[in-house]
Nucleic acid binder design. Structure first.
Lengths: 203, 203
DNA sequence: CCCTTTCTTCACCGGCTGATGAAGAACACG
DNA sequence: CGTGTTCTTCATCAGCCGGTGAAGAAAGGG
């Protein structure tokens, strides 16, 4: 698909680490576009200009490749970190929405997108996504609030994050999909803020 | 899996219509559990106690079966209808959430669940779900509101519906998954109401 | 009773999937 | 130069997939 060294025959062509990175990058792209189940190893290899067997040579199994693809330390945690350290509690709603959208806009090859695509039809991805959300979002939000109903409030934020992610990046529902980040922050920031610190609906 | 006439050999065993209905029901269950791509015709046939070829005999293709499975006239439209005719505008948020949850709680074999499971890894299901949401929800909400930003407000409700559906029925995130309908209505009713009729976040 | 239609089973096809094993080519080092 | 390690290709495997065609058994209609 891309440039492909025309010299044929077996042997060492590239540095190895380069091939591994190329596979990884292509895998993130395709997993993010079609999910785990609907992405074939052969498709990844072809798009990366590499023999399918190389994928198994470097990552052993398809699951191993997927695990490596969603493992992006050093890029995701800092973004999330800035939510909690970047300002006061009155504007945390806006920060959540803005951080989410800005990170997901610049590339759909995010762990959150890959997992959200895969989870609905893959039990293992479902478990991974649940862990991811609990660890990175729910627990930290709940700890930050400290109120008795903190867990439920954090869960409401999860619903916002999931809904926004699915609507904008998975389903591409208009006008959410093509709205500007600023517009969505204006709309959903207060909503998330209300989930976290607004008065509960008295029953 | 279920009762299976032990008499073997080819020939007419059941009324035909009965087999068709049995296949359809089983298909709805499995499509609702694993989505289109991860559900095989063979698995449906086996769970229905039927030869795989019968599926193709009745529904021609796997797509045909899926189309028949999500086509449930007479059960979905009335439920949605009650949202718009069952009360005034001040409580429409609660009605949306309550109707959604009650209908999806009583069976996961709803078109909305099947499509939401399938869409992330199947382009055709994605298009169908987008059509479904536009036709059954967005357009009617937007028409009901009539405000200049009606489309955006309706889209915000879509985010709530999608987020709620994914969190409770697909990902089963706690405590959303096991909360009572009343609790969720208390929490999300006002939220949806705010999306529709609340003051816009002035920019 | 035959004959047609409807339902059901079985055998099978080509194609694709994830995965394996062997063997060859490029390089690194002594 | 020889040797061993790392990378790459190729051929191939068993298994499952959606889908087809033929043929047999149960009914219904004349």
């Amino acid at each position: 698909m891309t440039e492909h060294d025309t010299r044929s025959g077996p042997g060492r062509w590239r540095s190895g680490a380069e091939s591994k990175q190329r596979i990884l990058q292509t895998a993130r792209e395709l997993f993010g576009q079609h999910g785990y189940g609907a992405t074939t190893v052969r498709a990844i290899a072809a798009a990366a200009g590499v023999d399918p067997a190389m994928v198994f040579y470097f990552f052993k199994t398809k699951q191993g490749l997927f695990s490596a693809a969603i493992d992006m330390p050093g890029t995701v945690p800092p973004a999330i970190e800035s939510i909690f350290t970047g300002g006061d509690l009155d504007t945390v709603g806006e920060r959540i929405v803005r951080t989410l959208l800005e990170n997901l806009d610049k590339s759909g090859r995010t762990p959150l997108v890959m997992l959200t695509r895969s989870a609905p039809s893959d039990a293992q991805s479902e478990a991974l996504l649940r862990e991811f959300i609990d660890r990175e979002i729910t627990d930290r939000l709940a700890a930050m609030l400290g109120t008795p109903d903190a867990a439920l409030r954090a869960a409401m934020v999860n619903v916002q994050i999931l809904g926004l992610t699915v609507a904008r990046y998975i389903m591409r529902i208009e006008p959410i999909a093509s709205a500007s980040v600023d517009d969505l922050v204006d709309r959903f920031g207060p909503l998330v803020q209300y989930c976290l610190t607004g008065q509960p609906a008295s029953s």
